[in-house]
Amino acid sequence: MDQTRTTDSVDQYILKLTADIQHIAAALRKIILSSSPNLVEEYKWSMPNYTYKGLVCYLQASKKHVNLV
């Protein structure tokens, strides 16, 4: 994954998750960032957000799943 497109705050968010949920969130993050070089990763509203001329999607982790919205 391109380290210049990721943020430390999202790294920290993922590291605080349980191991199985970390795996899912990290995989989704990789898919999202690889889908377009124009997407920008941000951490707002207490979750990872991906924007390009506005909000495209965000990840919301729970105890047993991760929502990709």
Rank of each mutant, 00 (worst) to 15 (best):
M1P: 11
M1H: 13
M1G: 15
D2R: 10
Q3P: 12
Q3R: 12
T4L: 11
R5M: 09
R5A: 05
T6C: 10
T7C: 07
D8M: 11
S9G: 06
S9E: 15
S9R: 14
V10N: 02
V10G: 02
V10C: 07
V10M: 03
D11I: 07
Q12N: 13
Y13D: 06
Y13Q: 03
Y13H: 06
L15D: 14
K16M: 12
L17Q: 08
L17A: 09
T18Q: 09
A19S: 15
A19E: 14
D20S: 14
I21K: 02
Q22P: 05
Q22F: 10
H23I: 11
H23N: 13
H23E: 15
H23G: 10
I24D: 06
A27G: 14
L28H: 03
L28Y: 05
R29A: 00
R29W: 01
R29E: 00
K30L: 13
K30F: 05
K30H: 14
K30V: 08
I31N: 10
I31H: 09
I32A: 05
I32C: 02
L33G: 08
S34E: 15
S36K: 05
S36V: 04
P37K: 14
P37E: 14
N38H: 13
V40T: 14
V40G: 07
E42M: 05
E42Q: 10
E42Y: 07
K44W: 01
K44T: 01
W45C: 00
W45P: 00
S46W: 02
S46I: 00
S46C: 04
S46K: 02
M47H: 12
P48T: 09
N49W: 00
N49F: 01
N49L: 01
Y50V: 05
Y50N: 06
Y50Q: 06
Y50S: 08
Y50E: 04
T51S: 13
Y52H: 12
K53E: 15
G54P: 01
G54Q: 03
G54L: 06
G54C: 04
L55M: 11
L55F: 04
C57D: 00
L59S: 09
L59Q: 08
Q60I: 01
A61Y: 02
A61C: 05
A61E: 01
S62N: 14
K63L: 07
V66Q: 03
V66E: 08
V66N: 04
L68D: 04
